[in-house]
Amino acid sequence: MEPIGNMMNKEDLVKKLEQAKLPELEVVGHRCRLRQMLIEGAVIVRGRDNVQVIKRPSDRLSWWAWLKGPAWRPAVASAVSLFIMAAIIAGVFYLATPSPAAIATDVVRKDPSIQQKLSGSGEIIVVRVEVMSNVARVVCGRGMGDFIEADVDITGRTVLTTRRFEGLFLAELAPEARSNALNITLLDDRIKPLISKGATVGNVFPVFSDISRITISDGHLIKITPSSYHAIVPIYLSDKVWLVEVNLDEKKIDRIIEPQLLSPYPYMNYTANYL
């Protein structure tokens, strides 16, 4: 070191720097350890307070390291795994198992005796399902007023008893719609001659033709909504009946079903003379 106050010239300083005996050290242990960390996948991340944190592979595999600990750890892990699996299985079972109402509906639709008892053909419409313990009370029909109430054993998936309803489930038209249907019918030139011959008008009822309009309310009750705003006006003359299908939206008669013998459906015989 040069004495204070005697400034070293640049050449001497450069010479001093160039000729200084420099440390050339090696710490083999560190070299090997760092190499191992690099190969095993250590990474560096910025931690809190800007501190650089080295994440070792063991950090990423800490779950396994944890498991390799005392015996209670794998036991806890197994219990948790079993619980999760049981919860998943229960969830799948719950989702895969149909509800009692769905089982009852299915039983009724497939039951041969009900198929036979209901008049007409086509798909059976379930109007209402009421579940009581292990028995469901199902009301079903094929539209046009022919309905059956069946008690279904949900566990046994069988129909226990059946009772026939007679026109009970025909939704009633609003008074204004009923009045409109009557007016449109009575003003029709094809109907006027029948009336003049003494024909009577039966109960006006709505048309159910589109089962896709079935909606479910309060869990079990199924309501059938008319596919469109149509009404049927029955005209009775002697032993025949004319069914007049009135389009209430367009305020016209869509069709008059040709006279036939009085309907086998009892409700159609309920007549009310509006004239």
Binding site: M1, E2, M7, M8, N9, K10, L13
Partner: peptide
Amino acid sequence: LEKLREKMA
């Protein structure tokens, strides 16, 4: 180098 020279003085 100039600064170092000063420090070395």
